[in-house]
Amino acid sequence: MSALAGTVKGWFREIVADWDRFWFTPVDPATLSLIRVFAGAMLLYTHGVWSLKLESFFGADGWLMPDAVHAFHREMHTWSYFWWLRTPGQLWGAHLAAIVVFAMLTVGLFSRVVAPLAAIATLSYIQRVPGALFGLDQINALLAIYLCLGPCGARYSFDHWLAKRRGVGLVAVEPSIAANIAIRLIQLHMCVIYLFAGTSKLMGLAWWNGFAMWLALGNYEYQSLDMTWLAHWPRTVSLLSHVTIFWETFYCLLIWSKRWRPVMLILAILLHMGIAICLGMMTFGLVMLIGNLAFVSPLLVQRMLAGRGGAVAPQSRADLEGA
């Protein structure tokens, strides 16, 4: 009995140690900083496009009038600062302020301050216009939230450049537990997204008989590149359908394997760029790839961008193991 108790205790101790190692190992913030650059640019573009029809969507007389939005959000706990804005002047003032925040996040200027502001702004836009949203907004929101948690401006930023100017010589970037937590949360969130994207397709006949990809590519309103010729290549359509659902369903397992990770990331690029180019969702395709960047190790990021982010930080175990 005591042997069994000892085994259980040892097993439990190992789980706790694995948990601590997974979450609380300091890593170089290179990957998080690179995600900040791309996610910031995507937030800037996404909200910049709202400028073209700001009052039509966010004004009191817009497509989604307050009573309709409140009915949609009934029994939900949502909040948006847009409900405080009464005049077109206030609306434009808040919008321009948000654009400045997103621009500052992209270039990494006062990152620790503008990252939470960017998250608040992103959620406020989202909660004001339910009905005009799609996957892009879901990923924008999660990236904005997780960027708040770590030192996202530690590299590839004006913050780093200014620190170097103020200091003498190169300013070392320290490995950070907060950077690891932010990256781990992005990784796990991406796994949850793909798990539900894959398993929810299992209910659809077209994903089993192989014609699902035709139903997507043959959708005239989505189509941005004419792929109608694929109708004459039914086995290719089937292959694309089956690979998509297998890849999505098993992503949450295989992405953690060092051997499979490059394969899963290459498939991510092919799938999301396919969506971007053929189905007219360039922003969605790109933002999913920004999320996938969380699986690229800080060391690899530093190597790819050598000379742009300052000195290479002391390498942690997680860096060397590819996170």
């Binding site: 939900m76 706990h77 949502t78 909040w79 959620l123 989202i126 909660q127 996957g135 907004d137 879901q138 929101a141 999660l142 939230i145 949850v192 997204i193 793909y194 539900f196 994207a197 929810s200 397709k201 299992l202 209910m203 659809g204 006949l205 077209a206 994903w207 699902a212 139903l215 997507a216 959708n219």
Partner: peptide, 16 residues
Amino acid sequence: DALYLGNGYRFFAPEP
């Protein structure tokens, strides 16, 4: 609700 986490992520599901 507040963090906009309640999405189904059912992209093109159950089928397009």
